[in-house]
Design a protein around this nucleic acid. Structure first.
Lengths: 188, 188
DNA sequence: GTATTATGGAGCATTCATGTTCCATAATGG
DNA sequence: CCATTATGGAACATGAATGCTCCATAATAC
């Protein structure tokens, strides 16, 4: 990875951190956080809009790649979701950015691409409802959103220091899969 | 409610809608949405910061009031949470605003007040863990955040047209309380 | 109906992020 | 070591949002 590539990566990484906390932060802040001059930032991303666009692309790519690498179509569905959770939780800042950016919220095609990235998860959930491992009285769309939301919440909560990030995957899976109620005991 | 009060309410209502979608929207947009001149907006809220502050106060009051009116300390915990869910879901825009506003995210005292408003929920969850109706292997802080996050997700999902808002309370409760997995059957 | 209060439009100064250019310096590659 | 490329600082123009003032008009109260 040459110097240009490294600079570009620094900028994207800094931008995702800064802009996920405050989507209206100035480009100076982003450049400073990346340890780079504002001039250089503009050399890589001529306008703010292009930076945002590149960031969204990058975040979507990461999410899609993380999900795909967890092979959600293989093995028992709950195990598959566990693998997805483990790989996606560390993407917290990117998820947070995608969720916070009004550019994303208001652009149809970006919402579409977000759900395209989540499509393998949706398929895993459908598979689970079909094979009886997941309850089938919840809409798949809702389950996908609730699941993604739980991961995002976990990252935010860890970021605020209310839980440890290392516990996040377990908490997400227990809560989403089994719920917070005491499970009914198998009768004695 | 005199004219001034109505104008103030219009402004707060419009602001919460506009700013929850884009926290950097201009004050002109807010005024226009409220059906009010920008001059009038500035008469009620001299600076943007004061408007935001008033909005946060208002949103926190609404949440606290809604929770309190659901009497979360009474009756079976799961029933209590159902009542809280029913009353809080309609506050979607206010919740969404509190969650999106960087002012809130970065001000310690506002985060503190958010959790103060949720304190009755935290107590209900503690009560549930103590009386055996809720599993006790999840940190209360996490359960509170996961629950609040699920309500927020439900509102967002309904806003995007992926579920019906009228189904939201049921979906939240089923998902959070029982989880998405098929419950283990009581033995034959 | 009149007095009082609330409103909104027009205009203006200020501030700040943004985008751009130019040049000197530093890092990299041959 | 030299040529090339990348960087960053300074300076500038632009535009948009903000905060404010003044005045005419509309709504409300008495």
């Amino acid at each position: 990875m040459g110097r240009p590539d490294r600079t570009r990566r620094s900028l994207l990484d800094a931008a995702v951190v800064v802009l996920s906390k405050d989507s209206s932060a100035s480009l100076s802040e982003v450049a400073t956080t990346a340890g780079v001059g504002r001039t250089t930032l503009h050399r890589y991303f001529p306008t703010r809009e292009l930076l945002i666009r590149a960031l969204v692309e990058d975040a979507l790519d990461r999410v899609a790649e993380a999900i795909s690498s967890a092979h959600p179509a293989e093995g028992p569905v709950v195990d598959a979701l566990q693998r997805v959770t483990d790989t996606v939780v560390p993407l917290g800042p990117s998820l947070s950015f995608l969720h916070a950016e009004p550019e994303v919220y208001n652009a149809r095609d970006l919402i579409r691409r977000w759900y395209e990235a989540l499509e393998p998860v949706a398929q895993a959930i459908e598979r689970g409802q079909a094979d009886g491992s997941l309850r089938d009285d919840l809409p798949v769309k809702w389950v996908v959103d609730a699941y993604a939301g739980a991961i995002l919440t976990a990252w935010d909560t860890a970021d605020e220091g209310r839980i440890w990030l290392q516990d996040a995957p377990r908490l997400v899976m227990t809560t989403i899969v089994q719920g917070i109620a005491t499970p009914p005991t198998d009768a004695p």
